[in-house]
């Protein structure tokens, strides 16, 4: 089971921790692999099914290593979306820098989507 989000618990964490995390930010989407095992990834079976679903030619196959690479690609895509949404919100709103319990809205995603799609 995935850990449930607890908004209250997040607000309790000391704010200096988040400043430290902000400093690590540029490298952090990939920094997770240093731990070896990742907390959340899209399973290869789902990736293969999704790709098959969108393909026009039924006969096209996909190798296992390629599926894993697509998994990494989508992982980076989704994590990058969250990181950009947060960084965009914090840039626009100086008060948000000190606010640990920030809520991401659809508006935040809308603002970063065009550049995100150009970069991926």
């Amino acid at each position: 089971m995935p850990p449930k989000r607890t908004p209250k618990a997040n607000e309790d964490t000391p704010s200096n921790r988040h400043i430290q995390e902000q400093a690590d930010r540029p490298a952090s989407p990939s920094a997770e692999d240093q731990e070896g095992q990742r907390k959340a990834t899209i399973p290869p079976e789902l990736l293969a099914k999704l790709l098959k679903n969108f393909m026009e030619d039924e006969g096209t196959k996909i190798s296992g290593a390629a599926t894993k690479t697509v998994g990494e690609y989508m992982h980076l895509f989704l994590t990058e979306a969250v990181y950009r949404a947060v960084s965009n919100r914090r840039d626009g709103d100086p008060w948000a820098k000190t606010n640990a319990g920030l809520m991401l809205e659809v508006d935040d995603l809308e603002k970063i989507t065009p550049q995100l799609l150009l970069d991926f």
Binding site: N10, L102, M103
Partner: peptide
């Protein structure tokens, strides 16, 4: 990702 960034 949100847990790492301390947001929701």
């Amino acid at each position: 990702a949100c847990l790492d960034l301390n947001v929701n």
